[in-house]
Design a protein around this nucleic acid. Structure first.
Lengths: 333, 333
DNA sequence: GTGAAAGCGCTAACAT
DNA sequence: ATGTTAGCGCTTTCAC
C-alpha cells in the first residue's frame, strides 16, 4: 500500500480511511495528505474480501428492459431507492433480471457481489428469488402474493387503509348510499380494497351491500356500473336516489363507471360522486378530473431501501411495512 | 475450499470452474459433482482480487432517474447493451450517475468494481468521465461533441451517411429540386446531416443551394419552410415547380415544414416530398406519415458493448464506430 | 494509539 | 494433467 509511505503502517491507513476512532490527529492528517497526493482509491474487491461486505445493494427488476422503461410504475420506485441510498454509503446496482439468464443473476447475487437485494415486480409469481432469502438479505416490494413469503421482508402499499380512506372521504362529503366496484378477488389489490370499503362503511354504520366486480379494465368498470344502476332502480327508488357515491378499485374502471353514469344522464359528482384508486396518468385529465388515491411508488422504493439498510445494520425492522397513501381530491367527488 | 473435498486440489477445482483445458475427464466430473452437491458458488471478490478482473461492465447514464426513464432514447440503448452482453460472461451494471454524488460513481469506477464502462448521454458537456479513460477502458456513446475526446473510443450514428441516404431517396423518387432544412450548426447532428445532403446532391450533379436553418423545433421547421417557399417564388417559377423535395434534419422540424406546405395549398408528397430524420414517436402518426431515417438506438447500445468487450479482450477496435441507419419509407415521399 | 501478523477465497505461475 | 507455492490489497485481532 503506497499510502503507507506517509509515515504510518497499513493498519493505520486502513483505520483512517474507514473513519475509525483512536487514531492520532497528526497521523490521520498525514494519511489524508498522502491519500490526496497519491490519488488513492481503495480496491473494493480486496476490502470486500477482508471485511466480508461490499457496500453494494442490488435492485432487481424481474422484467424485460422494455417493460422497465415503459411501465410508469418502475421509474418512481427506482428514484425512491436511489434517493434513499444516496444518504448512505451503499451504491445502487440496477439489475434488469430477465434480460440475462436468471442463472447469471443468481450467481451474481450469491457470488458475494452485494450485501443485500431489493426485488420489485408486479407479478409475484416469480419464485426465483425466494430461495436466496436465506443466504442474502432481501426486501421485496410491490404487490406480494405468495403465501410462502410469510417469513420474508416486504414493503407494500396499504391498500386496505387506502380504500377505507377513499370511502371515508365519500362519507365526509355527505354521501350515504355508497357502492363499490371491486377488482379481481385473486389479487391483494382487489381483495384489500374491497375490505377497506367495508371497513369504512361498517365503522359509519352504513350498509355495505352494493358491490359489483370488475377486472380492472375500463370496460369492466362501465359494465359494473350498469349493473349497480340496474339493481338500484329495481329497488323502486327514483333514479339517482338509490346511489350517491361509488368507490372504484382502480382509475381505469372508474373512468368506465363515469362514462356509464354520464350516459344515463346522471351528473358526476352532482348525482353520484366517484373516487378511484391509483392516480394513474389519466386520472387528472378525464372529465371530470378524478378524485383518487395516489399510489406512492417513490415512497415504496425509499422504504424498501430503508428496511434493507436497517437489516444490514443488524437491526430487525418489521417484516411487513405498509405505506400510507393519500387522497388526491379533484372534481369527481 | 470445500469442493476440494472431492478428491482433487484447489487449483484443479479452479481450472474446472473456469472451464480450463487440460483437466482429466474424471477429475472434472468429480469436481462438477461436488460443486453440485455443495451448492458451491465461487466468491467473486476473491476471484477478482486474484485475477484482477471483475466480469462486470458498467453502463453509466449521467442523467437523473426521471430523465432516464422518461426519455425514449435510453431504453433502447440499455436494451441493446443488455442483449449484446448476454452473449458474454459480463454482467451489466446500470449506474444512474447524477442520482448519487459524482464522487461516489468515480470511486466506484476506480475502485476496481468493473472491468470497463459505457457512458451514454445526450449532452457531451459532461467531462466527468474523461479523466477515467486512462485508468479504465471506456466507450462513449451518443453524440460526441468534445474535441478532446479524439483519443477516446466512440460509437455514433453515421449522421452524414444517413442524411445522404435520405436525400438519395428523394433523388431516386425523381425529385430534382431538393432543398434542406438543416439543424443547429453547433451540434454534430446539425452539421453532419447538412453535409450528407450536400454529398448526395453533389454526387448527382444537382445544385445544393437551397438551405434554411432551424433549431430542431417544430416551429422553426415551419418558419424555415416559409422562407424556402418565399425564395422559390421570388425566382419567378410557378408555385411548387421551384421545389419538389425537402430533406429535413429532424422529424419535429419536418412536421412543421409539412404544416406550412399544406397551409400553402401544396400537397405532400404530390407537390413536395418530405423526408425527416429520427423516426421519433410521432413520425408514423402525423399526416401524411413521415418517411424518415430511423435512429438505431438499440444498435448503438449493442455496438458500444461490443467495442468494449473487444477492448477488454485485448483487441484494438477502431476508435470511432459509425452505425449505419436505414430509411423508413412512409407516405411523405 | 499503533504496528505485526494472519488471513479473506481465489487464481496463476511454477514445479512435478 | 495436477499439486505446491505465492500472492491479489485490504481488514482485523492481538500485542505492544
Amino acid at each position: 500500500m503506497v499510502a503507507a509511505a506517509a509515515g504510518v503502517s497499513r493498519a493505520t491507513v486502513s483505520r483512517v480511511v474507514n473513519g475509525s476512532t483512536s487514531v492520532a490527529p497528526e497521523a490521520a492528517a498525514a494519511v489524508h495528505a498522502a491519500v490526496e497526493a497519491l490519488n488513492y482509491v481503495p480496491n473494493r474487491m480486496a476490502r470486500s474480501l477482508a471485511s466480508r461486505r461490499t457496500d453494494v445493494i442490488a435492485l432487481i427488476v424481474p422484467e424485460s428492459t422494455s417493460t422497465v422503461f415503459a411501465d410508469p410504475f418502475f421509474a418512481p420506485v427506482v428514484r425512491g431507492v436511489a434517493r434513499a441510498l444516496s444518504d448512505t454509503d451503499y451504491t445502487l446496482n440496477l439489475l434488469i433480471a430477465s434480460e440475462s439468464r436468471p442463472e447469471k443473476t443468481r450467481r451474481y447475487l450469491l457470488g458475494g457481489n452485494v450485501d443485500g437485494a431489493l426485488v420489485v415486480s408486479h407479478h409475484a409469481s416469480d419464485h426465483s428469488y425466494l430461495g436466496l432469502g436465506d443466504t442474502l438479505p432481501i426486501v421485496f416490494g410491490g404487490r406480494p402474493v405468495n403465501p410462502e413469503l410469510a417469513d420474508a421482508w416486504f414493503v407494500d402499499v396499504d391498500n386496505r387503509a387506502s380504500a377505507r380512506l377513499a370511502t371515508e372521504h365519500l362519507l365526509a362529503r355527505g354521501r350515504t348510499r355508497i357502492a363499490t366496484i371491486a377488482g379481481r378477488q385473486d389479487m391483494p389489490a382487489g381483495i384489500d380494497r374491497l375490505e377497506g370499503w367495508r371497513d369504512a362503511l361498517g365503522a359509519a354504520g352504513a350498509p355495505a351491500d352494493r358491490v359489483e366486480f370488475g377486472d380492472f379494465t375500463q370496460a369492466s368498470g362501465a359494465a359494473a356500473m350498469e349493473r349497480l344502476l340496474a339493481a338500484t332502480e329495481s329497488t323502486g327508488a327514483a333514479t339517482g336516489t338509490g346511489l350517491d357515491g361509488v368507490f372504484v378499485a382502480n382509475d381505469q374502471m372508474a373512468a368506465g363507471a363515469i362514462r356509464t353514469l354520464l350516459s344515463h344522464g346522471l351528473s358526476v359528482p352532482g348525482d353520484v360522486a366517484v373516487v378511484g384508486y391509483d392516480d394513474d396518468t389519466f386520472a387528472a385529465t378525464i372529465t371530470p378530473p378524478l378524485t383518487t388515491v395516489h399510489q406512492p411508488s417513490a415512497e415504496l422504493g425509499a422504504q424498501m431501501a430503508q428496511v434493507l439498510v436497517r437489516r444490514l445494520a443488524g437491526d430487525t425492522p418489521p417484516h411487513r411495512t405498509l405505506i400510507p397513501t393519500h387522497l388526491v381530491e379533484r372534481d369527481s367527488s
